[in-house]
Design a binder for these strands. Structure first.
Lengths: 112, 112
DNA sequence: TATCGATATGTTTATAAATATATATCGATT
DNA sequence: AATCGATATATATTTATAAACATATCGATA
């Protein structure tokens, strides 16, 4: 039987989830792939779902996170903005901090 | 527009959620009410759902968390065990620690 | 032994979330 | 203007989750 302590963080806008580990990974994959569809399939997620995530980020956020291009020589493409890169760094730092705490606090599992 | 950073913790057993804020609150209410049905209605949750939570805790955990009595002078009742009280204390401490971090890290919201 | 309030559990209905299917759009390149 | 790969979006279908409803069980007490 595998016991685990899990600590997660995310950001809400008006009570609704806006940014968390899933979107972080999606942004990172868009950065390395240069394509939303490729990023989606790497995550085993439908293109539609990925597109809706990005659309939500871009439309509810104060600034765009991803620039989507349709048509052109390769049919289209996607790239993340400086604003997105900044958030990625901050969010990863926080995640690491929480990962440390998770390790420090494992003893709570003895109470299960 | 209300931005919020949220940090939450829970415990999984074999990848499945086993204990978190909801069950913590349920145990606490059982403690103060002495009744599962009253605890459930205080949380605005169906008795059935609450019973299933407690049944899950008792059957998947190493020791019982709640003792349920049926029949008797008041028709029945519920009380939590020492094991449960111990977990409540530990989990609340951890939650408070995470609450502090949430406050310390609010600046990440500026990156949204 | 009939009552009462609380536990115990099955069945059904409604709602929401995830997934799948289909099609339209775009624009540099050929 | 035809092609291609990727974005854009609607609609349908399935699956999962939750809520509602119904009923059975228990045992001290009267």
């Amino acid at each position: 039987m595998e016991k685990k302590l899990r600590i997660r963080c995310w950001i809400t806008l008006d009570q609704e989830k806006f940014f968390g580990p899933g979107r972080l990974q999606l942004l990172t994959l868009i950065q390395s792939e240069g394509s939303l569809s490729k990023a989606a399939q790497q995550m085993g997620m439908s293109y539609k779902k990925a597109w809706e995530m990005i659309n939500d980020l871009n439309s509810r956020g104060s600034q765009p996170y991803v620039l989507l291009k349709k048509g052109g020589e390769k049919g289209g493409g996607a790239e993340i903005t400086e604003h997105a890169r900044n958030l990625i760094v901050k969010f990863e730092k926080l995640s690491e901090k929480l990962e440390k705490i998770t390790e420090e606090e494992v003893e709570i599992l003895d109470s299960i």
